[in-house]
Design a binder for these strands. Structure first.
Lengths: 363, 363
DNA sequence: TTGTACGCGTTATCAT
DNA sequence: ATGATAACGCGTACAA
């Protein structure tokens, strides 16, 4: 029998309050191995300064395996003064945009031996500060906050304060959005990407643009709209004012806005949504109305979420490396914390697909 | 100035090793409020048995707010003997199937005041036990493991052992898959759903079925295939043996299998994939080959992932309430732990959409 | 190199 | 109702 029983696993002592199922502690391992607690600790987690004799080391490791010892991360966190977890704040993990970023964060964290604590605001920006506070209580080493900021000074102040407290507690912070909170941020070039997209579409012959602009106070949406408008104005074909329609930053918002545009708006030959999920909503609105895409109207989005692979017609968009951004944000947060917040600018690249062949293209 | 400065926030004492940025502890709050540590603790987190005088309570709360005190969850975990986090193990958080379940888990956890620790195996089932062990170190209250089991006794034994250790450490467990690990499980009725789907498609007139069967050792895939085959056999039209093609359980797997079926397989008029992402891959394969769906061949999947909303033609499938399942699994894990593992059976419902109008349907 | 002892921040027990 | 104090499990100066 290679797997013999522990010698004195369950401590019968009056000490244990019996809360957890007979937890085996490092002391148990030390006793089992016949060494001191300190030695056991060094043998298992390897001290930076100290080293332990090979034979003792082996005895400790064997004892640990025999007892199925599992170090208590909470106790380690206390003793070491730092945890091994990073927080991630998203609006909705089921949204492919956030899911892709989350994949990057988990990958990076995994590589660094850290775990990810995921919190979702369920689309309510007002809950973000509370989630940051929650992560502060966990003493997470870092927190990555995703999702565009709003033009709402009260909300931003609350968030800024929450992040400041988080850092005061020793944690570091990285954002994926706009660099307005005074912390390190992965900044997506929304304006430039939108600008390039407008030019590319113009290059395919489109002249009458519609824009699904998202919420007026949403900074990402606003930047993208601005990029589109300046480019189109520069090209001499600014969109009709009524062809720029506001809505929520979601699929439903895009569907709604596209519906309004198709039903009561001026004629357009291409519609650009400020993100992909809105563009998907727009496609749905077009389908409902038997409006053919791209024959009657072209559609483009922004972000290049993985979902687009399965949409027909394949959707033109601005590719943004979401998974890489998740990784980068994590590294940014965990990296050396200089006094100045660091900014990492990420450019998007236009990808024209079947949804925008040009106004005269044969289907 | 409503927001006055802390009186004695930063403890200058030689105690602090200065590891974390001047952490404010409960002792600081107690001193600031002029009460004992115990009273401060009770005032802030409210003891079950003891109660504290209102005026003292208020003084403590004020002091805490003034000092921006944030309780240390790790210390609380130690003192209380239990944490407030649940673990979640998935294969890939970017996969809409897992993302939807994760949304349910976070929602349930959120409602119960718990945080979610997310770990992703990056599609490597062999890493699952290690992730469970990681969650055990954190002393997570519970762990939810998603993803179908394999017919691999070694792997299952390793997982069973990891879960047993997790429970021995006081944690509870719930699975979303097959009930073969001896723990509470949310069981999706794969066989029944597939059976019903086959009958429904047969009802629309399809007779020559193709099946994208997934990996041979994947239990979920196997159950679904079995459901399809028994139904079709019962209906007198079992699929041609060469029309049942194996592949990976992924989009690429579906694309690959569909390609092989279309290129070298027997003629079929409808193809059923054992999950939606494979069906999406199948659609891609059909597109590549200029095979029209549903005119030349119908396609159906399984799961009803949210992505399907945006696919054309809209995909027939078996609806499975993924978000609800995530919630249910969390509650199952956190609920009263009887000696017997609890099983929660979830049925799917067939949803026929545009991808399977019937072989003779006018497009 | 090994062992001893203290501290991490909080809760819970037991006196008061 | 409040306060002193012993755990909780581990890391690490410090002493041996």
């Amino acid at each position: 029998m290679p797997d013999d029983e522990p010698t004195a696993a369950a401590r019968p002592g009056p000490t244990g309050r019996g809360r957890r199922g007979a937890a085996v502690t490092l002391s148990d391992v030390a006793r089992e191995a016949g060494v001191s607690l300190a030695t056991a600790s060094r043998a298992i987690n390897g001290s930076a300064t100290r080293t332990v004799r090979p034979d003792l080391q082996e005895r400790v490791l064997e004892a640990a395996a025999r007892l199925r010892y599992s170090p208590d991360a909470n106790a380690q966190a206390m003793a070491r003064g730092r945890t091994s977890s990073v927080g991630l704040v998203v609006h909705d993990i089921a949204d492919p945009y956030f899911a892709a970023i989350a994949a990057g964060v988990t990958r990076a964290a995994d590589r660094m031996g850290l775990t990810v604590t995921l919190t979702s605001t369920q689309h309510d920006p007002a809950r973000e500060p509370a989630h940051v506070e929650l992560l502060r209580r966990q003493r997470a080493r870092a927190v990555v906050v995703c999702g565009g900021r709003r033009d709402d000074e009260a909300a931003n102040a609350a968030m800024r304060s929450a992040l400041a407290e988080f850092r005061r507690a020793g944690g570091s912070v990285a954002l994926v959005s706009q660099p307005l909170l005074g912390v390190s941020t992965v900044v997506i070039d929304n304006t430039g990407g939108a600008h390039a997209l407008a030019r590319a579409l113009h290059g395919r012959g489109y002249r009458r643009f519609g824009v699904l602009a998202g919420p007026a106070d949403h900074l990402t949406a606003r930047d993208r709209v601005r990029g589109l408008l300046t480019a189109l104005t520069g090209l001499g074909c600014p969109p009709h004012p009524d062809a720029v329609v506001a809505s929520a930053f979601t699929r439903d918002g895009g569907q709604d806005a596209m519906g309004r545009l198709l039903d009561r708006g001026p004629a357009v030959d291409v519609v650009v949504a400020v993100n992909d999920v809105m563009a998907l909503g727009a496609l749905a609105a077009a389908r409902e109305r038997r409006v053919r895409v791209p024959r009657q109207v072209g559609v483009a989005g922004f972000d290049d979420i993985p979902t687009l692979r399965d949409v027909t017609p394949s959707l033109s968009t601005v590719h943004v490396p979401l998974v890489d951004i998740g990784e980068a944000a994590t590294q940014l947060a965990l990296g050396p914390a200089g006094p100045e917040p660091r900014l990492l600018h990420v450019a998007g690249s236009v990808v024209l697909r079947d949804s925008t062949p040009g106004p005269g293209a044969v289907s």
